[in-house]
Design a protein around this nucleic acid. Sequence first.
RNA 1: GGCGGCGUAGCCAAGUGGCCAAGGCAGUGGUCUGCAAAACCAUUAUUCAUCAGUUCGACUCUGAUCGCCGCCUCCA
Length: 491
Amino acid sequence: MSIRIYNTLTRRKELFTPLEPNHVRIYVCGITSYDYCHIGHARSALAFDMIVRYLRYRGYTVTYIRNFTDIDDKIINRAAEQNTTTEELADRFIREFYIDMDGLGIDRPTLEPKATAHINEMIDLIAELIDSGFAYQSGNDVYYSVNSFPEYGKLSGRNLSDMQAGARVSINEQKNNPMDFVLWKGSKPGEPTWDSPWGPGRPGWHIECSAMSRKYLGNTFDIHGGGQDLIFPHHENELAQSEGANKAPFVTTWIHHGFVTIRDEKMSKSLGNFLTIRDIVKQYHPEVIRFFIFSTHYRNPLDFSETAMQDATAGLDRLYSCVAAIDCLTAAGDLNVPSLISKKDRVKLTSMEERYQQAMDNDFNTAQAQAILFDTAKILNKIEQQLTENSSPEDVHFLRDTLVVFKKLAGIMGLLQEDAVTYLRQKKAALLEGLDIDELTIEAMIKERNEARGVRDWARSDQIRDRLLAKNIELKDGPEGTAWVIKRNQI
RNA sequence: GGCGGCGUAGCCAAGUGGCCAAGGCAGUGGUCUGCAAAACCAUUAUUCAUCAGUUCGACUCUGAUCGCCGCCUCCA
């Protein structure tokens, strides 16, 4: 039993074996900090949060590095627009980033280095590249020479001649080859600068990840991740820099996740169709967002829609309802009563964890993992419904034990982490706020109706029920009395 | 133009060379109920874009065709 991961570099699923037994080193490209994060950033952070949690669950020690790009063109431009410094702008949006990520319950990586705190490491790396002939100075800039690295293009599956035929590369007189990319940019007036052997300037985008990953994870490490759009040019260039400088393989396994789309289009600022995390969190519980994100395999596109979020809400509620039902059981039955759990169901429940692992071992198939949770919930519900007052306490214990594992497995995706009864109650309270009726009124009307029902005055009883229904309150009469819910489709 | 991916029931979405093609949402039937609703249970694809081929056997492998998407410029 071991984990198989799809590796972008080899374009196939491979058995995952860390370089150092039981220790996984992983580097993920984080945000460029100049704006609020959108749902795509959430997918990225959540995907790797899940991957790291699963690796830890499988017994690995994980060193997880995720950087902040806090200096680049976009930051400089945005800071100028807002009449502030790049430092202030970047720091501000890093704080906003944490608000969003914490809200989604995302675990902090081991270390979150900032580019500007590693200028010296970048300068060292650039100097090494120049010394060994992979880079050259031209004017005040330093460029990486793609022709010096014969394997250039191996990650993205391109070759230099094809790319030049595409000819969307801007012609720059200072470059030897149009595909050469900048390692160090000579400063322009008004921009933040750092001193370097090539004059004052600032680093190019790709070099920071090569420098920081080397510092914290070494020349070669296990996993490098990011969005599919980073494969080219960002990761291709990182690879060329790191392997050029280190004379060692850069990364064993490259993991790239798919995009979040809206109406099947990629989110982009130019289309104006991007949604920020905080817009969505206003409307949906963080676990609903997680449920939605993990309902599709991480490499596939994921289309955001109102319907999809409602489906996710319904699904999560179903799981929570199951947990709540088991949580509320009391184990005060008769030990002499034989178990009513069938052998088949017992096997299904005890094999849950193994089946979950099989799903997750297969390239972190969270969609399948969720199916196993639902499968389990169905059986738990069935048994829970069959229990009577004098059922064997052993049965209740068995359900509870299963539930402990159930919650643990759901927790890898960050689901079912709240107390189920509280979750459902808070949800109800939140919904109630949007209605022009309060809980006391509802309770009073229910009491009145039950008095009517007591004397079999069905007309009056139904009238009260209809009045509540007009307020979107639905009643459910059960053996324990009358409960009420808010109509789901009125959300 | 180059590279890569996708096309599975009303919608979403797994899957594997060979037991009945997971699961969710919606729908339908049942249990429950004074009647309901909710909840729970059950049920819903002779078929996996199309057409060929490989194979004893393909949704799963190969090729072609049609359609959709992404990257090649900053991008999760």
